[in-house]
Design a protein around this nucleic acid. Structure first.
Length: 425
DNA sequence: TCTGGGGTCCTAGGACCC
DNA sequence: TCTGGGGTCCTAGGACCC
């Protein structure tokens, strides 16, 4: 017998802020923000900061004076720390369900099909308490028959003071009440374009969306819209996805800490990004057949001359060798780089990925690929052990004056012996 | 002065073929 | 004036997610 679908969505509250607070407990009731790469945007806010009206994803400089005036603690993002904390949270969740789908750095779906529904909210509370106790991270949990409804539950749990962090939406009456409380813009899959359109057409809440005509939805929102509506009605259309699908592309791009104007610096930066992307490629046990290099001026500065070139390179043989990839990418850089512009950002995208054991040989290719592979494996091991860039290609540059800003980064408390937290007793 | 980064999927429209 | 029709494949752009 196939049991009724039952999902929990576990969502970490203000995740990056919570990670910083674990290691700086005195910030527990203080306003805190975490910035994006290059200290550009605000990507995580504590509740105190949300209450000040600071918008998610807004440019830091727009709120800088407010932030300073209110004594808000500011952190550059520390993805090494957040990635490690995320792994810890996910490993706790694995105790509570046979199937955990890690949906993002701060969210996971748990398959609870077959679990007793009359005690499921208490089970959710136990999960919540255990994650908090073992990792220090507070979470909100939604439990329902579909993933989209579980998301709604977690949204309500986060915003309701009496829910105790867990909201179950199994009873039709509760479900309707929850959907009526949820703005249509908060529904999973309704983004910044669709939300205003829906609202203009008289659909303000998730409940109204769930009652919309299916054919009309198909026309307005495509096939995915129909699935969303079905899910809101309690019919599961998005199953658990436990096995991680192989990646279809790998990107590495960064804004520069200051404008780049010379070919030499642009080449260094692109070489560094290729190197990072190639590490990920090897982690993925894949090789790449085609890559795209791009660079751009500051699109926000209307007074400056704009230039956003890109170039696609097809590699003679699919590879994951950093040296070869840098060589190819830098040729593209030379072709599209023009002097006279202030570049703000550059990047590389590996498209056309193949599993490394399916490499198509080129009969004119004389490179000894097995030796090259072993060399890269050794470099990766050394960099894992002694820190990234312990061994690097000269093309990446040594001082990297164009490197992004991250002046307010916290230590890597959990992944570097030299940065452990010290406690004075 | 100062505006992130990394993904996936869907669709419309053009190119091309018969 | 009148200017086929239908299928497939590819790609760019748009939408979404975190």
């Amino acid at each position: 017998m196939v049991s009724v679908p039952l999902f929990a969505l576990v969502d970490c509250n203000n995740f990056y802020v919570s990670c910083e607070r674990v290691f700086a407990p005195k910030l527990r009731d203080e306003p805190v923000v975490v910035l994006s790469n290059n200290d550009g945007c605000i990507v995580a806010r504590s509740n105190e900061v949300k209450a000040l009206g600071v918008k998610m994803g807004s440019p830091y400089f727009q709120y800088r004076s407010l932030i300073e005036h209110r004594g808000v603690q500011v952190f550059s993002s520390n993805y090494t720390l957040y990635g490690d904390m995320s792994r810890r949270v996910m490993s706790v969740l694995a105790y509570f369900s046979p199937e955990v789908e890690v949906y993002s750095i701060d969210e996971a779906f748990l398959n609870l099909a077959g679990f007793a529904t009359n005690t499921i909210t208490d089970y959710g509370k136990k999960i919540r308490a255990t994650v908090k106790q073992w990792t220090g991270i507070p979470v909100s949990i939604g439990i329902a028959n579909t993933k989209t409804l579980a998301k709604v539950g977690a949204y309500i749990a986060k915003h309701s003071s009496k829910a105790g962090g867990v909201v179950t939406l199994l009873h039709p009456r509760y479900r309707e009440r929850a959907l009526a409380m949820t703005p249509v813009a908060e529904v999973w899959g309704i983004g910044r374009r669709l939300a205003p359109r829906m609202m203009g057409l008289g659909i303000q809440t998730a409940l109204q969306l769930s009652r919309a005509n299916e054919r009309w939805i198909r026309k307005q929102m495509g096939v995915n819209g129909v699935r969303i509506v079905q899910e809101l009605r309690g019919i599961s259309c998005f199953p658990m996805q436990v096995a991680r699908a192989p990646k279809k592309s790998i990107t590495c791009s960064r804004s520069f800490g200051r404008p780049v104007t010379t070919l030499t610096e642009m080449q260094e930066a692109v070489a560094a990004y290729v190197s990072r992307a190639a590490e990920e490629l090897r982690e993925e046990r894949a090789v790449v057949k085609e890559l795209l290099v791009f660079m751009m001026t500051n699109r926000f500065n209307e007074k400056e001359l704009q230039y956003h070139p890109h170039m696609t390179v097809t590699l003679p043989v699919a590879t994951s060798n950093t040296g070869e990839l840098i060589h190819q990418a830098l040729q593209a850089v030379e072709k599209i780089f023009k002097t006279g512009y202030k570049y703000k950002k550059a990047g590389v995208i590996f498209t056309e990925l193949l599993p490394e054991n399916q490499t198509q040989m080129d009969m004119f290719d004389t490179t000894n690929r097995s030796r090259l592979g072993k060399l890269m494996a050794v470099v990766d091991r050394i960099n894992t052990r002694f820190g990234s860039r312990s061994l690097q290609f000269a093309a990446q540059g040594i001082t990297q004056p164009w490197h992004m800003k991250c002046d307010m980064r916290s230590p890597c408390y959990t992944t570097d012996w030299n940065q452990l937290l010290t406690v004075q007793a």
